[in-house]
Nucleic acid binder design. Structure first.
Lengths: 125, 125, 125, 125
DNA sequence: GTGGTCTAGACCACC
DNA sequence: GTGGTCTAGACCACA
């Protein structure tokens, strides 16, 4: 896996696994790969994966079964999608509008750009 | 001044001063307050202000006159606005669309929200 | 059987079987179900039951008759009850009082709660 | 600092610091010693302290100021005492009564012991 | 095999 | 000086 330097690796892995649960790559109730497997696959130290798992567990996205591994929580997908959407409207969108204002992008200018992108660019990103 | 823990303090001050130049609070050619004044006003270590000034200077937004202080560069405002707009389209907007996709916010849903907000919320932010 | 994630599974099964001997579900001298039976019944790996049996045997609560199975020791019940009571006064009660102190629960406050619970709640738990 | 083998070191340090905040050793709003200081004082690796701080921060008991250190949250003490008391009644007390029942300690027997201890032992523990 | 903890040590950005 | 992240490697209990 390729990592971006702006964000810590373990948080990028948190995002990565969260998205895999959201899009069904890791289905609800299923076991996710072991710490060592993921570490090898992502070219990262097992401790880093462990930290990721701690984070996901504290968010109640995954559960642990002793000696067996980590499993996707039953309602993880739904709760992830809900939280993501809420975060989008509560934090991402206002911040975006703030940035638009600082860049002196007028609402009409912005609308024009968003229209042009709809739906092609947006869907393929 | 209140700071956000997600971003380094000196970068938040860079943004703050940059915006003050963009909106004319600090006009072109004028002297900006001294390191000590700003440090006291913002409740921050003078070293942090120095770092801010170094950053602004390297972006050619302010100039130093030895023994006198720092001054807003003649063309600072125009260049700030240009860079801001470019950064908005090159980085902020794509990232925003990416976040929208991850949050499963459809283009039409997004348009609807933006319409509702336009122009009232957006202008007053 | 449902397990608590704070304690190892085999120790939870040890507790479970110990209590069944204490309350007469598994009477003295009788054979207890086989490893495979218990494993199936509890939804657990047979190795885990084996470990449980080893533990119980080392505490002289059960005995093994080769090729036949495990049997409740003749004096298991009496010894379990004695040890439990001793452990309660030596370890559980002091720890409980320590927790009460950390929670700033005064002795009188505690007495009041215990009175209210006695005997109804306590007996039916 | 001396550690108990039944519980992970970082959780024992969490308890230790939490109690120090509860009893006023670390007053609200004050800075707590640095990671390196505590690590040296407790004879532990700085990473272990870091893990402790992450835990305390996620519980909103301490806050971070970039480049300066960690500070006790303004309302940490009150919230700690509330949570502790709630946990005592919700979890510790029921578990204790359950243990008493398993040990076949009758309510009256228990009351007698608690009386005897009141208040001397309890206060000095 | 699984996770979990801890250490030692390096390197970084930031104040 | 402060915290923050990551690696490497060891050791452990548990299933």
């Amino acid at each position: 896996m390729e990592f971006n330097n702006n964000k810590s690796i373990f948080l990028q892995i948190v995002d990565n696994i969260t998205e895999k649960i959201a899009n069904g790559t890791f289905p609800a109730g299923e076991r996710i790969p072991s710490v060592r497997e993921l570490a090898a696959e992502m070219g990262v130290n097992p401790n880093t994966i462990m930290r990721t798992f701690n984070e996901l567990q504290s968010k109640q996205i995954i559960d642990n079964r002793r000696g067996i591994g980590y499993f996707v929580s039953p309602d993880a997908r739904k709760s992830i999608l809900m939280k993501k959407k809420q975060d989008f409207y509560d934090r991402v969108l206002p911040e975006f509008l703030h940035q638009a204002k600082l860049a002196r992008v007028t609402p009409s200018e912005l609308s024009k750009h968003l229209e042009k992108l709809n739906p092609a660019y947006y869907e393929n990103k």
